[in-house]
């Protein structure tokens, strides 16, 4: 069974050969996302930059965090967090995006005025 990677490279050259291409890919994606931020895509700028972030994260998780090795225990532990985060975001946005206009938090702006000076009369 090779689930935990018993037959990994044994010399420095082989190790760099395995992981350097991943780093080159990460740097290319970073250049792409920084340049893409200046393209006039409207709301799709966010879609593009998050898609590139997911691509970078996938590279890191598969190659640096070794989830490419077929170990079901580790893969389950990693995906459990994703499942719960999916619930968190789905249920919250099901509320935020479907509220009637008067109940939106936007109708109450955050307070920015300086706090009132104390007048010497205490409430208690």
């Amino acid at each position: 069974m090779t689930g935990l990677g018993e037959n990994l490279p044994r010399n420095a050259g082989a190790i760099w050969h395995r992981i350097l291409p991943v780093w080159v890919g990460l740097m290319a994606l970073l250049a792409g996302t920084a340049a893409g931020a200046y393209l006039p895509l409207g709301r799709f700028n966010l879609v593009l930059s998050l898609a590139i972030a997911v691509a970078k994260a996938t590279l890191v998780v598969l190659f640096f965090m070794q989830l490419r090795r077929p170990n079901p225990l580790l893969r389950l532990a990693a995906s459990a967090a994703l499942v719960f985060m999916a619930f968190l975001f789905t249920l919250t946005f099901a509320d935020v995006l479907t509220r009637a206009a008067p109940t939106q938090p936007g109708t109450v702006t955050p307070q920015v005025t300086a706090p009132q000076q104390a007048t010497g009369q205490r409430a208690f």
Binding site: N11, A12, I15, W16, V22, M27, F64
Partner: peptide, 21 residues
């Protein structure tokens, strides 16, 4: 860029330790 590169060296360190380099 600094952090992505540090991940590269950390991956090399972990695999290097395993290979006893």
């Amino acid at each position: 860029a600094l952090l992505l590169t540090s991940s590269l060296t950390m991956a090399a360190a972990a695999e290097g330790a395993r290979a006893r380099l």
